[in-house]
Simulated scan of single mutants.
Amino acid sequence: MKLLDTTLKNNVLESMTKILDKNREALLQANQKDLDAFNKEDQAMFDRLILNNQKIDGMITAINEVKAQEDPVNQIISDKNLKNGLQVTNRTAPFGTIMIIYESRPDVTIEAAVLAFKANNKILLKGGKEAIYSNKILVDFWHKALAKNNVSKDYIKRMQMDRTETQAFLKNPTEQLDLIVPRGGERLISFVKEHATCAVLISGRGNNYIYVDESADWYKTLAIIINAKTEKISACNALDKILINENIENFDMKLKELQSVLKEKSVTMLVDEDVKKVLTNETLIADNNIWKEEFLALKCCIGAVNNLDEAITIINENSGGHSAAIMTKNNENAHNFMQQVDCAAVYKNASTRFTDGGQLGVGAELAISTDKLHHRGPLGLKELVTNKYYIFGEGQIRV
Rank of each mutant, 00 (worst) to 15 (best):
R105W: 14
S234N: 03
G127T: 07
N150H: 15
N84G: 09
M159N: 03
C301S: 14
N90G: 05
T352Y: 11
T313I: 07
G127A: 07
E194Q: 09
A116F: 15
K122C: 06
Q340D: 10
A68T: 02
L188R: 01
L258V: 08
E294M: 14
D213R: 06
N336W: 12
G127L: 08
L115T: 14
D252I: 15
K263W: 05
L179Y: 13
L138G: 12
D42T: 03
V12Q: 00
Q69T: 02
G393K: 02
H375L: 02
P378L: 11
N207K: 06
G204S: 09
A364W: 00
H374F: 10
R158K: 08
S369V: 12
V151F: 12
M45K: 04
M253G: 05
D274C: 04
E214K: 10
I110P: 00
N172G: 03
L28R: 13
L125C: 11
L239I: 10
N331L: 10
V278S: 06
G206P: 01
K229P: 04
F46N: 13
T386W: 07
L373A: 14
I56S: 09
N39G: 14
A62K: 01
E282S: 13
L170Y: 11
I60D: 00
Q339Y: 15
K254E: 05
